[in-house]
Computed example of a mutant assay.
Amino acid sequence: MLFDMSEMIRRPCPALIRFLILIITLGALWLFIHKYPRFNTTRIILPRWIEVVKYKCDLSKPCPGNKFAFKLLSGAANVVGPSICFENEMIMSPVQNNVGRGLNIVLVNGTTGKALRYRSFDMYSGDPKVLLAFLKEVPDDALVLVASYDDPGTKMDDSIRKLFSDLGSNYAKQLAFRDSWVFIGARHSKSKSPYEKYLKNNPKENKYSDWPELVELEGCVSPKLV
């Protein structure tokens, strides 16, 4: 069988076309570099629509002047701890090594947005009276930020559930073993808090075998939770 060069020229194969395009591209790049030796790639300015703009707590948009930015993530199973960010301050997180099994709670000044105090409470083998005392001392003007990790419900008794319900929680009364939960509440709330997510531990639907998927809550909040 004779090799027909004229046929190859008339109908070039895809590999040959790609090779020729590569040679032309490299040649053009070589000419450009030699023609503009002072060209500096660090001075390239991306179009505004390509630029990535980050707002407080990595939100996709800024909060109005009268509201605070926040992002809460519950823990993932018993492997990755939760995180609580408020007004661009990462108050609790695994990186800071200040989170623990159970409930991780931050109290924030509702006027200034500054963190007042934070603490984790072991709800599997810890003393629930410690959490009860903590919740009873929540200041009237404080926001209460909560993120669960591993097991938030085993040691939660009716008195603790009532206090969380009084802060505006919709799910505190049903929180149980290894559920995922994030919540923002405040004292003397006139209605239930709109800032809450809950995922029940269900072995048939869990993402992490014995634990449900983590839950995430983010947005803008005012001192009055509206």
Rank of each mutant, 00 (worst) to 15 (best):
P94A: 07
P128T: 04
G100P: 07
L103F: 03
N78F: 06
Y124F: 14
T112Y: 07
S120F: 10
C85D: 00
R101F: 05
V79F: 09
G102V: 02
S125Q: 14
T111N: 11
R117K: 13
V95N: 12
S120D: 15
V106I: 06
T111Y: 11
V130Y: 07
M123C: 01
Y118N: 10
K71D: 11
G75Y: 05
G102H: 02
S120T: 10
K114D: 08
S93Q: 08
G113V: 01
R117Q: 10
N78A: 10
K67H: 03
E89A: 03
S120P: 10
L73G: 14
Y124G: 09
L72D: 07
F86S: 07
G100A: 01
L107V: 08
L107Q: 07
K114T: 10
Q96M: 14
C85S: 00
N78G: 04
T112N: 02
G81A: 13
P94F: 12
Y124L: 09
Q96W: 14
N66I: 01
P128V: 04
F68V: 04
A77M: 12
A76E: 15
P82I: 15
P82M: 15
C85E: 01
E89N: 03
R119F: 06
F86T: 06
V130H: 06
F70P: 00
G113C: 05
D127R: 04
N104R: 01
K67D: 02
E87G: 07
I105S: 08
I91H: 03
G81N: 12
V130W: 05
E87N: 13
V99G: 05
L73D: 15
